[in-house]
């Protein structure tokens, strides 16, 4: 039993009308590890998590969470799960303590055990001193922390975190990332979705990259980076003619996977020393003024660019 994966997604599919949000996603998350689903907005991450948390019924396929099927045993799945939704899902007119107490009851906690767990979680999320203030008065980061705390009340075996750091200050973000690592150290399995490459790199044991409803790559950070070899990523921010410059770059030898988006032209190159003068020359020839240059060693963004031909941005 203990050898079974914590999460096993088997060809999950979900459509909303004509929109095929998830198209045959399969992956496996081992017990006690952090698995990140990385992808841009609309890639299908939240739909996948919604199916894994029994909120949406898959059109096809199945998934097992701690050996329980999301199709045949949804209540069993829910009992071992803690879900941190992307949006703040709290009662703003109740205090943090009242929120935690209520949600604890929904996870079948009662009496002194509930009270003890509420105190513990308040300590973990660092809000014990302000526990009796209404959540509506909290900052965005504090609300995020309570949002996470709710999912931890019943000490779940598996925690889903759907983009928990969106729109918050660096300090709260740091607190959340530290807590995710702490959960792993306590033996929990974490399924984490994000479109921040740095978070996936920092936290994850394994990473699945999603785009257009498909899982396009899966592995450890190192395994994924190897997909793009030793290519260096170069971003040039231009004042104009980004598309024309990108088109010109595609003709340069040693340059692969060129993208143009939001005033930035991006290229993966085998040797940055050799390629840079040619890239600058093409920009200059097309009268595009370079306002900034960014050269990065191979990383997940380069992997995404390599696999999709698009940059991984917000």
């Amino acid at each position: 039993m203990s050898d079974l994966p914590a999460i096993e997604a088997l060809d999950l599919r979900k459509s909303f009308g004509e929109n095929r949000a998830v198209q045959g996603v399969s992956f496996q998350v081992n017990r006690g590890e952090i698995f990140s689903l990385l992808g841009p907005n609309g890639a299908g991450k939240t739909t996948t998590i919604s199916m894994l948390s029994c909120l949406l019924r898959p059109d096809d396929g199945d998934a097992r969470v701690m050996g329980r099927s999301i199709r045949s045993d949804p209540s069993g799945v829910k009992s071992v799960l803690g879900v941190v939704p992307q949006e703040i899902a709290l009662y703003e007119d109740l205090s943090a303590r009242e929120n935690l107490t209520f949600w604890g009851k929904m996870y079948d906690l009662r009496g002194s055990k509930l009270k003890a767990r509420v105190d513990e979680v308040l300590e973990v999320i660092g809000l014990r001193d302000r526990a009796n203030e209404r959540v509506g008065k909290y900052s965005g980061g504090m609300k995020r922390r309570v949002n996470i705390g709710v999912a931890l009340l019943h000490k779940p075996q598996v925690v889903y975190m759907d983009e928990p750091t969106v729109g918050i200050d660096p300090q709260s973000r740091r607190n959340i990332l530290d807590n995710v690592v702490r959960l792993k150290n306590e033996g929990m399995t974490v399924l984490y979705t994000t479109h921040y490459m740095e978070e996936a790199q920092e936290l994850s044991d394994h990473i699945g990259i999603m785009d257009h409803g498909k899982l396009i790559a899966c592995g450890t950070n190192e395994e994924l980076v190897k997909l793009v070899g030793q290519q260096t990523r170069i971003d040039l921010t231009l004042n104009a003619h980004v598309e024309s410059v990108a088109a010109a770059w595609r003709e340069i030898e040693g340059v692969s996977h060129v993208a143009a988006e939001n005033g930035v032209a991006t290229a993966l190159v085998n040797d940055s020393n050799l390629a840079l003068p040619h890239l600058f020359e093409a920009a200059s020839r097309l009268s595009a003024r370079i306002t900034s240059v960014n050269i990065r060693e191979p990383n997940l963004e380069a992997v995404f660019l390599h696999l999709t031909g698009r940059a991984l941005r917000d």
Partner: peptide, 14 residues
């Protein structure tokens, strides 16, 4: 709309 109802549906509460 506040997303608390979907969250309730993710708890082991029928």
């Amino acid at each position: 709309e506040e997303r608390t109802l979907p969250r309730l549906f993710t708890t082991p509460t029928p």
